[in-house]
Design a protein around this nucleic acid. Structure first.
Lengths: 205, 205
DNA sequence: GGGTAAACTGCACCCGCGGTACAGTAATTG
DNA sequence: CAATTACTGTACCGCGGGTGCAGTTTACCC
């Protein structure tokens, strides 16, 4: 192994997969070090305890998700000047990307934290809230731009509507896992898209 | 204590609360027996191991949820003959009921199982799938009746639409927990209601 | 009122896992 | 060549799940 082998990242990759499928508590340090081919001491050299690993996993996960959304909805904005149509294109691309994941979406650490609250320290629960509020801000801004052009056919709170993107993603992941159908998430995103479409597009198309 | 004290149910009540907030693995038998004021032997008299407790919890939880939905949407059907309006009334009542829970929805065991897959036995994962499919059937039947009268303004698959109810509930619970806002779930349900409304109601209202 | 079964208590013990402590070592870098 | 980084090895602790089994209380039935 030695220096160039990036052990810390390898530990985190192994841990992330395991945490998303089995849950944090069920992921033992023992199995991580076996798969990473290091010793227990090696693990605790990189992370002083399991909670520090959780924090590192969470930070990295959120950063990646943000980059992914920047990428998808950034590209969508390039493809259409109108904010509504750009967003609809973005949702379509998001759905397609999720449908193309061979084993389905691996799960979301936000939900993992929610369903294992007490075992994480306060820091990570606060970070969780912050990350959800960042999604809200992102999509609220989008819906703000849209509503300056299109008037919604139903009265809606734009913050709630922004949260609905997160809701459908988190709920869709749960459904995909429960149904053992990797494509379920993608189809739920398309339903959200359908809602946004008929909510803002004028009735006499 | 003695005979009439219904120890088994008391164990399950304590365990359910703990499982929904902390997760299954983080719920120790030790804390359950302290709160239930029994001994370890007493616990293992009722459940041969933790997995049997999980199975019992899950069965009871699903039964209660089904009864709740029967009640709410049954009452809604009594209040309006038209299937669309009855369903919209049902969603409103569901939302109001969730908003009235003092500490918000406690969480859903379906999601708990999804995010802790490997630690439960196969039996419980199968039951999870069955329970989600039962929700699908219930709401698919509703949307079937609706679509025989109203023609949707967008092409939608009725199974997916039925799943969206579960999606928004599961996702909404995650959002409520993450945001630490008990009312978030209720507001997401109302957005789903808004979608169903403008999806089926004719454009020239 | 005595017997039986249900519903426990008490105690002793094993294992796996998270975590600590600390000494030793191989490779890299300045 | 010295110092730092990135580990290994070993020994040990406490907690929680789980087993085994003998003993005890309580309710109810005959």
């Amino acid at each position: 192994m030695g220096r160039g082998s990036n052990t810390r990242e390898r530990i985190m990759d192994i841990a992330e997969t395991s945490v998303l499928t089995k849950g944090f508590v069920a992921t033992s340090i023992e199995e991580i070090i076996v798969e990473a081919e290091i010793t227990k001491s090696g693990f605790f050299y990189h992370f002083k305890d399991k909670n520090e690993l959780a924090n590192a996993l969470f930070d990295r996960y959120i950063d990646r998700e943000d980059l992914l959304l920047d990428d998808i909805f950034g590209r969508a904005d390039e493809l259409h000047d109108d904010p509504l149509h750009a967003f609809l294109i973005g949702l379509k691309m998001l759905s397609e990307m999720l449908a193309d994941l061979p084993n389905g979406h691996p799960g979301c650490l936000v939900a993992t934290v929610c369903y294992n609250e007490q075992i994480f320290d306060r820091k990570i629960r606060d970070k969780n809230q912050v990350s959800v509020l960042r999604w809200r801000k992102r999509f609220r801004d989008t819906f703000q731009s849209i509503s300056e052009i299109y008037q919604p056919n139903e009265p809606v709170d734009l913050d709630d509507l922004a949260d609905m993107v997160s809701t459908v993603v988190e709920g869709g992941i749960v459904m995909s896992k429960a149904l053992q159908d990797p494509k379920a998430l993608a189809r739920q995103i398309l339903l959200l898209r359908s809602y946004i479409k008929i909510l803002f597009l004028p009735r006499n198309h």
